[in-house]
Simulated scan of single mutants.
Amino acid sequence: MDTLQVIILALIQGLTEFLPISSSAHLILPAQLLGWEDQGLSFDVAVNTGSLLAVVIYFRHELWAMAKAWTLSIFKRELCAESKLAWWIILATLPAIFFGFAAKDFIATHLRSAAVIAVTTVVFGLLLWWADKKGVRQLNEYQSGWRKALFIGFAQALALIPGTSRSGITMTAGLMLGLTREAAARFSFLMSVPVSLGAAILVTRDLLKSPDAVDVQALTLGTAISFVAAYACIHYFLKIISRMGMTPFVIYRLALGAVLCGFIFL
């Protein structure tokens, strides 16, 4: 990849990973629409690591409190709001792990296409709009409970389909279950930590088996740009989401779906 391609793809990853518009769709599309070669496993690991570092550092206080409380809940049987949230995040991660292993080959072979992305972009965008308009928006993330967490976890598994958007579908599920916009976003962001970490480990394992050469400069630049973009995205998204709502992202998804359909059928 040349430097421009690295910058564009890293910005796409960082800005779209935590917005409800699908980072995987935006990373697949440049290769298909602009004729770029696939960026490869090593670059996927790099930009994913950048966005993972961003969410870990941004929520470092919450994650540290959850980790301490979770440890105490195991060894001293002490439960509090932070330990419960930690257990719920773990529970919500299980469906993605199961379906990820079960369906990854099928998804990689049959679903990484512009046509699938066009459909999922529109369908799940409309579902996000409906959830945002109809949700009661009364609960915070500490009031979610294990049943709601598991439901959001199954929703997260749908994000294995390109174009669905992991953050988008988990926020949609949270809004449907009565979480506020901010709580649905925070729960979604916290859920991204174990999922992103697991994905990075698996892709790194595949990378170590790959004979492809590694461009250290491109990977370093991609990681740094993805980190800065993702951190800024998280910060400003949480500040404006309560006032702005999900409608602008729904409009964007519908417009993107229309553009994709134009590329496909024209």
Rank of each mutant, 00 (worst) to 15 (best):
93 T>M: 09
135 G>H: 11
188 S>L: 07
158 L>A: 11
194 P>Y: 03
81 A>K: 15
94 L>Y: 01
98 F>E: 01
96 A>S: 15
154 F>L: 15
172 T>F: 11
84 K>F: 02
202 L>I: 08
90 I>W: 00
153 G>I: 01
105 D>Y: 06
103 A>W: 10
141 E>Q: 15
174 G>Y: 03
131 A>H: 07
163 G>Y: 12
82 E>V: 02
164 T>S: 08
100 G>I: 09
139 L>N: 14
77 R>W: 10
198 G>D: 02
87 W>Q: 15
119 V>S: 09
142 Y>V: 09
111 L>T: 04
91 L>G: 04
118 A>N: 09
205 R>E: 06
87 W>K: 15
117 I>V: 14
128 L>S: 09
194 P>Q: 11
147 R>Y: 11
155 A>G: 13
179 L>V: 10
97 I>N: 08
176 M>A: 15
104 K>H: 14
78 E>W: 01
191 M>K: 05
153 G>V: 07
172 T>D: 12
147 R>H: 05
194 P>W: 08
78 E>I: 07
152 I>R: 04
141 E>F: 07
109 T>I: 08
92 A>Q: 10
197 L>S: 02
130 W>N: 03
92 A>H: 10
152 I>Q: 08
125 G>Y: 12
175 L>C: 10
206 D>K: 09
81 A>S: 03
172 T>W: 13
76 K>F: 05
130 W>G: 12
122 V>H: 02
91 L>V: 15
78 E>G: 07
156 Q>E: 05
159 A>M: 00
125 G>C: 11
164 T>L: 09
110 H>L: 08
182 E>H: 12
202 L>G: 04
107 I>V: 15
121 T>S: 14
158 L>Q: 04
142 Y>M: 06
87 W>H: 15
130 W>E: 07
115 A>H: 03
93 T>Y: 08
204 T>D: 01
120 T>L: 05
180 T>V: 12
112 R>W: 01
151 F>N: 10
207 L>Q: 11
120 T>H: 06
175 L>M: 13
122 V>S: 10
92 A>T: 01
111 L>Y: 00
133 K>M: 13
188 S>T: 09
185 A>I: 09
82 E>W: 02
143 Q>A: 11
198 G>M: 02
117 I>W: 08
100 G>F: 04
172 T>G: 12
118 A>M: 11
195 V>N: 01
197 L>D: 05
106 F>R: 06
206 D>S: 05
